[in-house]
């Protein structure tokens, strides 16, 4: 049995305006899962990921990350284990160069400078952008920014990564690139997306969310081939499965 890394029970959440966004959601994911969280716009995917990294603690129910209950005093510890990649890379990157940004997390964790150096190098290698190290953030293309964002997370050597709509605004080449990089990352991944082709290429499990509830949870085969189910939840079958 592999370890349960994420354990969510009866999660309920609403923003200040009070409309429930997540309803009694229970979910578990273990070490080697690569889970696609799919659902139409507004289904609650992003909100779910944000709750997992403690960006909002006003939920009821429980979230446990590697056995540690998520609460204010465990935040720092939990955030060392989870990497969160923002949908919009411009929100993620804020230092001046790629190298500086990738070094940001290890430095915050107080690692000695040689170790920071090593982490930065390794993270950049993992996403194949060592050549961009000294490049200014604002000179990167969209695809490069996405890979750089991922590197800023990998330098923390997280046990799991969460990605919000990673394929948005990527051209086909960068998209293939990202799929490749993600498939090389062996730990737990949660990928929120309504790009089902992307999910098909990166995930071994799919969770379908609608109106803050889990509608289905199974293998990509089961769920992504079920045109009726997808249709009923505002999604479209992946192009690669439509048999064209």
């Amino acid at each position: 049995m592999s370890h349960i890394h994420i354990d969510v029970e009866n999660l309920n959440f609403s923003y200040e305006n009070g409309t429930p966004v997540l309803k009694n959601l229970s979910f578990r994911a273990s070490e080697n899962d690569s889970v696609g969280i799919i659902g139409a716009n507004g289904a609650g995917k992003s909100t779910f990921l944000k709750l997992l990294v403690g960006l909002n603690l006003n939920f009821t129910g429980s979230i446990r990350i590697e056995e540690i209950p998520l609460e204010k005093k465990t935040l720092a510890k939990i955030r060392e284990k989870i990497g969160y990649v923002f949908q919009d890379s411009d929100s993620q990157l804020f230092m001046t160069t790629v190298g500086e940004d990738v070094a940001f997390a290890p430095r915050n964790y107080g690692l000695p400078e040689e170790e920071v150096e090593k982490r930065v190098q390794e993270a950049l290698e993992k996403v194949h952008i060592t050549h961009l190290r000294d490049k200014s953030i604002f000179k990167l293309s969209g695809g490069e920014k996405k890979l750089a964002s991922l590197a800023t997370i990998l330098s923390m050597t997280p046990d799991m990564i969460l990605l919000d709509e990673p394929s948005v605004a990527l051209d086909p080449k960068n998209r293939r690139n990202l799929i490749h990089v993600l498939n090389e990352f062996e730990h737990l991944k949660l990928i929120a997306s309504h790009d089902l082709d992307f999910i098909w290429d990166t995930c071994n499990r799919v969770v379908l969310v609608n109106h803050g509830e889990i509608i289905a949870d199974g293998s990509p085969e089961e769920i992504l081939r079920d045109g009726e189910l997808l249709d009923a939840n505002g999604l479209e079958k992946p192009l690669s499965l439509t048999g064209r």
Binding site: V53, L55, A76, R79, E80, G83, Y84, F86, D88, D90, S91, Q92, L93, F94, E100, A103, F104, A105, R107, N108, Y109, E113, V116, T152, I153, M156
Partner: peptide, 24 residues
């Protein structure tokens, strides 16, 4: 919103209010 996201991004990466810029 954007500034908020950036601040979140810093916090998620262990930012505790002190800026560490390596190069010593």
């Amino acid at each position: 919103d954007r500034a908020n996201d950036i601040y979140d991004s810093m916090q998620l990466r262990g930012f505790d209010g002190d800026l560490r810029t390596g190069e010593k």
